[in-house]
Design a binder for these strands. Structure first.
Length: 262
DNA sequence: ATGGTTGTTTTACAA
């Protein structure tokens, strides 16, 4: 079973790349973030024609998450329990969708960016992660044996090795101790980074800013992850970051992250 | 040259 996560940065502008990605890697499931469209705007036909079902949650031009599967798509859940909202008044955003595909419980997650340290969005990010941690722990089941994958754009670089220049990020989001602690708290419940053993650092990234020629200069960040419960960890056969997808005209600023389960 | 790029319901804002 092959599963990928990809922040596509608008599915309407990159539906051809998404379809090619499914075919190129023979994917069974694709978790998408930043689809940037409403449900009625999602380009379903090219994916359905390729034999996939789609569960999408999008409210407007911001955020948007989806699960694309050819191994079943059951018990779809939009958002998680007590997921915080943002703004005044509080609005629930399209940042989480869960479904069961081929016996695995999968979540496509788009963690809030945080914008700037001290910004309300930064506090929102930390609270969002805290609530996710509590729910994710319950998803492991009473004996911790459930097959669960938490995939997506986490907007956190867990260690200094996960950014091209730690000094560049001083005073910026994505690398602060509270953000890293929030990420570590989810790992501590029993989830593990499924990809890192197959894609060691340094210099291994999943995102490169569009500006400043960051990609050709290899100046990126590792912020997209597939985290797996222990029973998923035990099935790991292979993993890689599809850096090729970041190349060429019309690429997303994120690369897909792909795993293979036995 | 105080910028440099993408996307969206665009000429503002989010990333």
């Amino acid at each position: 079973m092959r599963i990928a996560t990809w922040n596509c940065n608008s599915i309407r502008s990159r539906i051809d790349r998404a379809a090619a990605l499914l075919e190129r890697h023979d994917l069974d499931v694709l978790l998408l973030q930043e689809t940037k469209c409403r449900d009625d705007q999602f380009p379903l036909l090219p994916l359905e024609a390729a034999g996939y079902q789609v569960a999408h949650h999008g409210l407007n031009q911001w955020n948007g998450v989806a699960i694309v599967s050819r191994v079943g798509l059951e018990e779809v859940q939009v958002g998680f329990e007590q997921m915080p909202g943002f703004g005044d008044p509080l609005v629930s955003e399209a940042r989480a969708i869960g479904a069961t595909c081929g016996g695995v419980r999968l979540w496509s997650l788009y963690v809030p960016n945080g914008r700037e340290i001290g910004h309300p969005h930064y506090d929102y990010k930390l609270e969002w992660l805290k609530v996710l941690r509590d729910d994710a722990e319950r998803w492991l089941g009473p004996d911790g044996s459930a097959q669960v994958i938490l995939g997506g754009d986490w907007n956190i670089a867990p260690t200094d090795e996960d950014v091209w220049d730690p000094s560049f990020f001083e005073g910026k989001t994505h690398v602060t101790p509270p953000e890293r602690a929030a990420f570590a708290a989810i790992v501590d419940t029993g989830y593990a980074d499924l990809v890192r053993p197959y894609a060691p650092g340094p210099g291994t990234y999943t995102y490169w800013d569009y500006t400043q020629l960051r990609f050709p200069k290899k100046q990126g960040m590792r912020i997209d992850f597939l985290l797996g419960s222990p029973s998923v960890q035990a099935r790991m056969a292979d993993a890689f970051i599809d850096r090729e997808e970041r190349k060429g005209k019309g690429a997303s600023d994120h690369a897909p992250v792909v795993i293979t389960l036995d």
